[in-house]
Each structure stands twice: as C-alpha cells, then as structure tokens.
Design a protein around this nucleic acid. Structure first.
Lengths: 157, 157
DNA sequence: TCTTGACTTAGAGTATACTCCAACTTTTAA
DNA sequence: TTAAAAGTTGGAGTATACTCTAAGTCAAGA
C-alpha cells in the first residue's frame, strides 16, 4: 500500500486523462509532483489541491500559460501570497466580464426563441412587417434597434 | 452611392475583420451575401441581421459547423421556422449550462480571493492548520471537502 | 490608358489545447 | 525469471478558429 497515486489513478479519479496530465506537466503546471528515482510520477494526497485549483482556473477560462505563472508562485510558498491574491482578483474580474457577456447573449438567445415561436404561429418569419407600427411588440423593436446599432458600428446594445 | 457594403465597410462597422468574414464565407456561414458579376461580395442592409445573429451564436460558444447548419435553415425561409426554434432552444439549454458552470467556478474563485486575504493577514498559506477544529471558518472546511470529493472521484461539489 | 488601391481565391502559417504513437524502461505478478 | 502491464519521453497528428500571403482580377480617378 503505497502512499502515492500513479498517473492513471489520478486520471481515473479526476476525469483528466493521463495524456492531458502529462501535457500539463510538460507545460509546467505540475511542478509540485514528485518523481521516483526511475522517473515515475508520484502524486501525493496533498497534490490534489493544486490540481483541483488548476481545473478551476481551466474551467473558468484561464489559458495554460497563465496557470503556469500561478503554479510558479504556488511553489514559492508564503512569500507569494500577495501576488497570488492579485492574480486571483484579476482573474475574478475577467471571469465576471465573461459571465456578464454570456448573460447578455442569453437574453438575445431567449428573445430569438420567443420570436421563432411567434413566427411559427404566423407561419411567417417576417410576420411583424405586416403589422402596424403600434402593433409590433416592443421586444421586436428593441432587437431591430440592436441590429441597427451593429450595422452602424455602435459597440453597445 | 451604392446600396451595398463592401467587405471592408462591413469589417469596419462590425469589428469583424475582413479576413474573418472571408473565412466565415468559406465555411458556409455567409451564403446570404450576394455577389457582383465579377465576384465581389455585396453586403446589403438586410444582411446585417443574420450577420448579427452569427456573432451572437459565436459569442455564446456555438462552433462554426453548427452555425453553418443554422444558416442553411435560414436560407430555406419559412419552411424551417420550427427547426430553427428547436435549434435555438437547444442552444439556450447549452448556454445556460455553461453560465451555471461559470457561476460555480466564480464561487470558488471568490473563495480563493477571500482565502488569500486571510492567509496574507496570517502571513501563512496554511494558517488554518494551526487552528483548533472549531476555529476553522466553515468556508475552508467546505473547500477542503470539495477537494476531497475531487480526490475521491465524486463528480459533484 | 494606366496606375493605384480594393477586391478575389487557394492555401500556408499561427495559436491553443489536447491526443496519440513509437520506442524504450520499470514494475509487478505468475 | 520472464512476460505483461504500466510507466517514461520526444515528437507527430488533430481540431478549431482564425490570420495572413501570394498571385491575380477589378474598379475608379488623374
């Protein structure tokens, strides 16, 4: 009963393939993993925490190069706490921006779903063109304005 | 004063580079764009709507191959309203999943920011180890449990 | 007419993140 | 002991989405 995990143990437990783990190592993300005398990776209990942190950074969109910079700081221990805090605060800002953008996209996708339902009722993708100005749903007018802003080169909307 | 836009007009207005627009065309996304007799792309006023829709699908994470399928349906007009509705509903589901995941990651990144602040105060990245069990903040225990679930191969958490 | 600049295409190059293979070594179990 | 299983590395291959270059065509003004 070894106190270490092999790369396949870790792969099976975490769902990260052994190929990917080796790739991460090659890219300098797994510098905390010990090796046996013959060079075999020995993952310890404690290694799962930084590995989990890597998956969180990964899933939240941080590129591998940046994760590597974080892992360099991690290795240096207490002297880099402040730098790591700053890195995470910066990452948090970026992540919030991304979430905000996706929520904005969701609003449009949601509108499109509604619109296709209306169009289906009328059996005409341009049914609103037959309507009088004041009969057109404001949602449609808003969308048309957004497209118009897009055409005229305005960022917002 | 032509009633058409050149590829560079469109590039400048939309912020999508001419290279990218040509790439999208090559990939079958811009089948709605007319051509002059000599083969020059003639973007019309009306083309900005499907182009905007492409950017929304793109920004919300739909791969180009899928956007192409949508554009094929778009070209066929009224007969594909229902299919397009189904496509958007499916995409909406995927997008919601992605937003949910990012929000979950945000919670962890947020915790990490808090933890680094605490660690900075104590000048020790493992300060909680010095504390008695009941002095450790529940947030830390929750995080440790999440890492433990990760190590033991449990999906959730 | 001719030059300049914008347009076209095919195809090569870049970046990111894997994913896999070949060749070899180490570990494990009959 | 020895064969299979599992580990290692370097490097090639894949997929996605651009990004750019080369070679050529087209359009508009001096």
């Amino acid at each position: 009963m070894s106190e270490f995990y092999t790369i396949h143990d870790v792969a099976q437990r975490t769902g990260i393939s052994a190929y990917t783990l080796r790739y991460y190592d090659k890219e300098g993300l797994l510098t905390f993993v010990k090796r046996s005398e013959s060079g075999i990776r020995l993952f310890s209990e404690a290694d799962f925490e930084p590995l989990y942190t890597i998956t969180v950074l990964k899933k939240s969109g941080m590129p591998i190069k940046e994760i590597r910079e974080f892992m360099k700081l991690y290795l240096r221990g207490n002297e880099t706490i402040h730098e790591r805090l700053l890195m995470f605060q910066e990452h948090k800002k970026n992540l919030q921006k991304k979430i905000d953008e996706l929520n904005a996209m969701m609003a449009i996708v949601d509108y499109k779903c509604w619109y296709f339902e209306e169009a289906e009722k009328h059996n005409d993708i341009n049914y609103y063109m037959e309507l009088k100005e004041d009969e057109i749903d404001p949602k449609i007018k808003d969308f048309m304005k957004t497209v118009e802003d897009f055409r005229s080169g305005k960022k917002a909307g």
